[in-house]
Nucleic acid binder design. Structure first.
Length: 104
DNA sequence: GTACTGACGACAC
DNA sequence: CGTGTCGCCAGTA
């Protein structure tokens, strides 16, 4: 049984369209938990969820910040590039260019 | 309740 | 641009 917070976070991430990205802080805010960015990271770190576009979540500095036994930064960069997002060799990107804002 | 942990964020150097 | 500090929060032991 997942927590209410977890379900909300999952719902928000699933609504991010391909080719766009959001920060952990944004996800937290949209999940009605302003300031819970760390909690979002904690959740994605210890949970392997299929059918969830986890790679569209990056930090507010516009950098890929991943620490997961199932995925690696190279994979996240590859997935983002496949959607047309330009990611540098240093795993950074222009977040303001691709940032998505919740409209629902 | 306390004491950690950590895919964060803002800011100060 | 990098690095450290501090505050933040859900979840766990």
């Amino acid at each position: 049984m997942r927590s209410k917070f977890a379900n909300q976070v999952i719902g928000v991430i699933k609504s991010v369209p391909a080719g766009r990205v959001v920060s952990y802080g944004q996800v937290a805010a949209y999940a009605d938990k302003l300031g819970a960015a760390r909690a979002v990271g904690w959740l994605l770190r210890q949970t392997e969820l299929p059918d969830l576009p986890w790679w569209r979540v990056i930090n507010n500095a516009g950098r890929i910040s991943i620490k997961n036994m199932f995925h690696q930064p190279e994979e996240q960069r590859r997935l983002l590039r496949e959607e047309g997002v330009e990611v540098g060799e240093d795993f950074s990107l222009d977040i303001e260019k691709y940032r998505w804002f919740h409209l629902i």
